[in-house]
Structures are given as structure tokens and as C-alpha cells.
């Protein structure tokens, strides 16, 4: 279980996170919704060690990871599918997957996992030798997910995987998130697409300007009138 306690993060003098606590239990899909600038991405970047917090504690399976660098944090089984996908556009599709397995040395198993990911995303296999920069947005998102899976993570954090994608592709992505979760991986999902994100969430948090203002099961939040108005664009009845 990932545990975040009283996390405070500042960016150039501005407090982006003002004391956040949340739990991500194993095997669940946990969703974090919030508007632009609420601090969602900052939270994920801090967990993975790209940003150092001012105070607070992050622990994973009872082990504190707050002060570790990204490289060490990744070895504990946490990975990130970053906002905007950020595939290595100058590497081929296959190389992007291989680099996801950078820390592994079991060649035969890596080959198997590549086959598994190609089975899940046949489009990627067709484009095996293409540079990742030539893929469409949806394909790049699939590649970003595949790349993250290549390190055999226990917890996958996804930062707005539906951003800028066509509705049909978004549906695909959410189906895949559920598939991955069914395989036993824990998901921490950040979304502006609150409707779909809450539908698949076991538990959800609402983040507003650096603070968690609400939490509950996905279903509860979907039915909450405040949430419906603020995030789902539906008027109070």
C-alpha cells in the first residue's frame, strides 16, 4: 500500500500541495480528480521522486520512500505514465518498450512481456520499427502504458491518460486500465475526465488547490450533487 501523509510541496515559493494525505491500497483503482492547477501532477511527480517535498512522508509497503531518488523508487515497483505521454520520440516503438525494462536483466522474460504487450496493443506490433514520434496520440498513449508495464510494476500511476484523445480511444484506454487492474496491479489514476474515472474507481479523492476536499467510493462521488455540478457539468436538480 502506498501511503501519503501531510505532504507539502512548493514550486518557486508557491505551495502546490498544502498537506495532503491519501492511501492507495493494493489491487485497487484509486482516482484523483480535480481542475487544472489543483496539484494533481505535482503529487505524482513527488511520489516518483522528480520533485522533493517540503514536508510530509510517502511510504510504500511500510518503507519510507520520501527521500529516495527516482531510480530507487522505481525499483520498489512504482511507475508513472506521465502527462502528455512523453514517449521517447527518437526511439522506435520496440526500443521504447525495451527501455521500460531497463532495470531488468532477464532477457527471455522481457521478450515474453513484449509479446504480451503486443498482444494487448496489436497496433504497436504493426509499428514495431517506427519511431515513436510518428505514432498518433492514441498509439503513443498505448506505448506509454506498455512502456510502464515493461518494468513489471506493482503500482502504476497514470497522469491524465485520456488527455487529447478521441472518445473511442479513451474508451479503449479505460478498458485497458481495468484489464491491468484485473491482473493484480494497483492503479492511481489522475483525470479531468471525471465521469469515466469515477466509474471505474474503487475509491476517489477530489483535489482542489492543493487540498483534498472530498473522498468516497467512485459511485458516491458520481452521485454527489457538488461533484456533479463542478466536474460533470450537470446542474443540480
Amino acid at each position: 500500500m502506498l501511503k501519503v501523509e501531510d505532504l507539502v510541496v512548493s514550486y518557486g515559493g508557491i505551495e502546490a500541495l498544502k498537506g495532503i494525505s491519501l492511501d492507495v491500497p493494493d489491487g485497487k483503482i484509486i482516482t484523483l480528480i480535480g481542475a487544472n492547477g489543483a496539484g494533481k501532477s505535482t503529487l505524482l511527480r513527488t511520489i516518483i521522486g522528480l520533485v522533493k517535498p517540503e514536508s510530509g512522508k510517502i511510504s510504500y509497503n511500510e518503507k519510507e520512500i520520501t527521500a529516495l531518488n527516482s531510480q530507487k523508487i522505481v525499483t520498489t515497483g512504482i511507475t508513472l505514465v506521465p502527462e502528455g505521454r512523453r514517449v521517447f520520440s527518437n526511439l522506435t516503438v520496440l526500443e521504447n518498450l525495451k527501455i521500460g525494462a531497463y532495470m531488468r536483466n532477464d532477457k527471455a522474460e522481457i521478450e515474453k512481456d513484449i509479446e504480451w504487450i503486443y498482444g494487448m496493443f496489436p497496433r504497436l506490433q504493426e509499428r514495431n520499427w517506427q519511431l515513436a514520434g510518428t505514432l498518433s496520440g492514441g498509439e503513443q498513449q498505448m506505448l506509454a502504458v506498455g512502456r510502464a508495464l515493461m518494468c513489471r510494476p506493482k503500482l502504476i500511476m497514470m497522469d491524465e491518460p485520456s488527455l487529447g484523445l478521441a472518445p473511442l480511444v479513451i474508451k479503449d484506454i479505460f478498458r485497458i486500465i481495468q484489464e491491468i487492474n484485473a491482473k493484480g496491479m494497483t492503479i492511481l489514476l489522475i483525470e479531468q475526465n471525471a465521469n469515466m474515472a469515477l466509474k471505474i474507481a474503487d475509491w476517489a479523492y477530489v483535489l482542489e488547490t492543493g487540498r483534498i476536499t472530498m473522498e468516497g467510493t467512485g459511485k458516491e462521488l458520481l452521485e454527489n450533487p457538488q461533484i456533479r455540478e463542478a466536474y460533470l457539468g450537470k446542474k443540480k436538480k
Binding site: I48, F88, N90, Y102
Partner: peptide, 16 residues
């Protein structure tokens, strides 16, 4: 090549 494109994400891949 990965580091030259995006060193932050390279770090997340576990590259030193």
C-alpha cells in the same frame, strides 16, 4: 538517446 530526449522520464525508467 533516451536521456537526450527527456531526462526526467529517463530517470523514471530507472536510468542513472
Amino acid at each position: 538517446r533516451a536521456v537526450s530526449k527527456d531526462y526526467e522520464i529517463a530517470r523514471v525508467m530507472g536510468i542513472n
